[in-house]
């Protein structure tokens, strides 16, 4: 084995009635990789992600996440991954410190660990003065950074980011990617979805789903040369234009 695989996925499918939301997808994600998971609306991204996060059983195929089986070891998967989405971030009516403590507890860290790590995290983020402030009072950029830090607080092997930068201003969006790079450099694997095609370029490899299937999987530069275009926007457009279905 050349590289450590954090996700392995072989002919993974999910059927709702006779509709294949996810249709035999196969790919691996390496340790420390930034893996972009793209697709048109309704291509099956969310369904695939739910299976990989241990939230939904596949209909057929095989997959492991952080070394655990998606059929039999869902609870272990949940303990070993982090998750952040644009919609769900943190409890607005709890302070920064309370949010960190709460999520640390949910992920089963003991009090001592939580205390040590939360002190360190607040220091790293430079939020010493704000630690007791309600999260609701923080600017959006800070909320996003904090939400990401909380998602990797229990030091998961992999973190799933579902459109983490939607609606965020251009500077904050880039600062957020700085954090992603830093986390990846420490060995955390990043699995990220986005609608911003420039962000697709920041990934080591990306997959593009169309109608339930993975239609392309490679580094951004290889994809661009394969499709003889200059931007990821055009790669995506060429692939997704042929999609026959669309949904949320």
């Amino acid at each position: 084995m050349d590289e450590e695989k954090v996700i392995t996925c072989k002919s993974l499918s999910k059927k709702f009635g006779d509709f294949y939301a996810v249709n035999e997808i196969t790919f691996d994600v390496n340790k420390g990789e930034i893996f972009g998971f793209l697709g048109a609306n309704g291509a099956g991204k969310t369904t695939a992600m739910r299976m990989l996060c241990g939230l939904s059983f596949p209909s057929s195929g095989e997959a492991t996440v952080a070394g655990f089986d998606v059929y039999k070891q869902q609870e272990f998967i949940k303990k070993n991954i982090g998750y952040m989405s644009q919609k769900f971030s943190l409890y607005e009516n709890l302070s920064i410190l309370e949010n960190i403590e709460f999520f640390g507890g949910v992920y089963g860290l003991d009090r001592k660990e939580i205390k040590e790590r939360s002190g360190l995290l607040i220091q790293t983020l430079g939020l010493e003065k704000e630690a007791k402030k309600m999260v609701g009072e923080l600017p959006l950029g800070w909320k996003q950074k904090l939400a990401f830090s909380v998602a990797i607080f229990h030091r998961p092997k992999i973190v799933f980011l579902d459109e983490p930068t939607g609606g965020v201003d251009p500077v904050t969006r880039r600062q957020f990617w700085d954090m992603i790079y830093e986390a990846a450099a420490t060995g955390i694997t990043i699995f990220v979805t986005t609608h911003y095609m420039d962000e697709a370029e920041y990934c080591n490899r990306i997959s593009i789903m169309v109608d339930g299937k993975v239609e392309a999987l490679d580094s951004p530069s290889n994809l661009k040369s394969k499709f003889s275009v200059h931007s990821m926007d055009d790669v995506f457009y060429q692939l997704a234009r042929g999609a026959s279905r669309s949904a949320d």
Partner: peptide
């Protein structure tokens, strides 16, 4: 066009 994919946005 928020949250809508590239094709629908175009």
């Amino acid at each position: 066009t928020t949250g809508v994919d590239v094709v629908s946005r175009k």
